[in-house]
Write a protein that binds this DNA or RNA. Structure first.
Lengths: 196, 196
DNA sequence: GTCTATATATAGATAGAC
DNA sequence: GTCTATCTATATATAGAC
């Protein structure tokens, strides 16, 4: 079972390094050191860096989807669940474990590496669209709300918010963008239920 | 003058490579080959890769600001200028020359490399907020429009739209997010001038 | 200003002992 | 399963000739 444990540690170390340094910035040597595993060990369990990266990216993508679903499945209005999703984000300056990899040309060029990214964002947009649709059906938003487009905008604001925050060196811009989007969504809610 | 020309070609080659492969993925060797310059030439004009990268990032940032201002300074309503900015984007799958660098840890860790990114997005958010403010003053939007927050959301949707598009392998998600945001903004416009 | 030679470190992996 | 030795290529630069 020690072997299985080593394989798991190698994948986890790769996940961390991919998050921090991207694919091109992650070396087999760094993975081995962080996992506390030797070279022979790594090449015994995995075919090499691309093989390890594929396992790591699949796992990170699954974790991101799970974390998002945990927030979106909570009780509350659609507006409240969207707000919770936008404000759930932590460690803004670290960026997104999955979205950050889209910047790497070697990732987008490899179908097996890119697939988990595509699946994650397709799923997330659909999940958010479902939440918005529930809200619209319940009269929370006006009937004209473009649920699919709004869902795509929400996901984009989060991913772009990371870019703005990392560029600024502080998390402020992430929250400004998220709050700005929520305020726009509230205008739609106000139309459905005019203020007293 | 040949030296000046070589220096310019080195900077331009570095700009292209930073856009395509990021900082960590760009080698001095690749820069020299793309610029058609020798090693001695490169190290005569620049102190090394970080020095060259600083010049290249500053130039790319200035070009991005110039291109954005060209669109935002055009004639038309605020809504129309925001739409023009969102739809101006080309070559979506290549991403943003400036925002893409925010993913690189070596870029955000170097104050001189990160500064042009911070300046670009601070300027862009302010420029968009000004456009929205003009629209609000002219009665185009309701008085409750959060111009600064909306501006941040617009910039984030563009940067995040690139992430979604590159993840998907096709530009569709970029445009879906942009259209979704515009539709939300239109709800605010509709409140200012109720539909007949 | 540009060229070629040289130098150290790391990337990424294979081979074979244990 | 893990370890050490070894290997080729590249990253990133410096030195000094021309």
């Amino acid at each position: 079972m020690s072997g299985t444990d080593t394989a798991r540690r190698l994948v986890e170390a790769t996940q961390e390094l991919l998050w921090e340094r991207g694919y091109v910035g992650t070396s087999p040597r760094a993975i081995q050191q962080r996992a506390g595993a030797g070279q022979g060990s790594m090449y015994h369990h995995f075919g090499g860096k691309p093989d390890l990266a594929r396992a790591a990216v699949r796992r990170s993508a699954a974790q991101v989807r799970e974390a998002a679903d945990a927030v979106l499945a909570r009780e509350g209005s659609a507006r409240e669940r969207v707000r919770a999703y936008l404000e759930r984000e932590r460690e803004v300056l670290r960026g997104c474990r999955v979205g950050g990899l889209a910047q790497d040309p070697d990732v987008v060029a490899d179908p097996e590496l890119r697939a988990p990214l595509a699946e994650t964002f397709t799923w997330l947009r659909g999940r958010l669209a479902d939440v918005l649709e529930e809200g619209r059906a319940g009269g929370e938003f006006g009937p004209g709300l473009d649920t699919a487009g709004t869902a795509a905008a929400i996901v984009a604001v989060v991913q772009g918010g990371y870019v703005l925050a990392r560029s600024a060196g502080e998390p402020g811009p992430f929250h400004e963008a998220a709050d700005g989007l929520l305020a726009l969504l509230d205008a739609h809610a106000a139309r459905a239920t005019p203020a007293s």
